Amino acid sequence: MTFNDVVEVIKSLSIAEKQKIQLLLKQYIREERRDEIYDNFKLAQVEQQEGELKFSSNINELRQMIEE
């Protein structure tokens, strides 16, 4: 089934069914985003343990780090 097929099926649903799909999609997106944040957190922990993270409160140093 293609994306366009899914869109067409959704268009044929009742408003209540569309609202349920909307709620489900919001939940799925929230869960995926939460997982992504957790994965990034775990990666940052590993980088910190390996001494790969750099910190600074100096704005010029931060800009230089971003450009690297």
Rank of each mutant, 00 (worst) to 15 (best):
N40I: 09
N40Q: 13
K20D: 08
L53R: 12
Q49R: 15
Q48H: 13
R30C: 03
A44S: 12
K26P: 00
R34E: 10
E31V: 14
S57Y: 12
V9H: 05
R63T: 11
L25A: 14
R33V: 09
R30F: 10
L53Y: 03
I29Q: 08
Q22P: 01
K54L: 10
M65D: 05
L62Y: 02
T2C: 01
L25F: 14
K11W: 00
N60W: 08
F41S: 07
L25N: 10
S14Q: 00
G51Q: 04
I10D: 00
F3N: 07
E47F: 15
E52Q: 13
L43C: 05
M65L: 15
F3R: 08
E31I: 14
D35E: 11
Q64H: 10
I59L: 11
T2M: 02
F41A: 06
K42M: 07
E50T: 07
G51T: 03
K11F: 04
K18P: 01
E50P: 01
E52T: 07
R33W: 02
F41L: 14
E8V: 05
K11R: 14
S57I: 07
I10W: 03
E17V: 02
F55V: 13
E52F: 10
M65P: 00
I15P: 02
Q27H: 12
Q45K: 14
V9K: 14
E17R: 12
V6E: 06
N60H: 08
E52L: 15
D39G: 01
Q22M: 07
S14T: 15
L25R: 11
Y28I: 13
Q27S: 14
I15D: 12
S56F: 01
Q22L: 11
D39L: 13
N40K: 15
Q64T: 11
K54N: 09
K54G: 00
D5Q: 15
E32H: 08
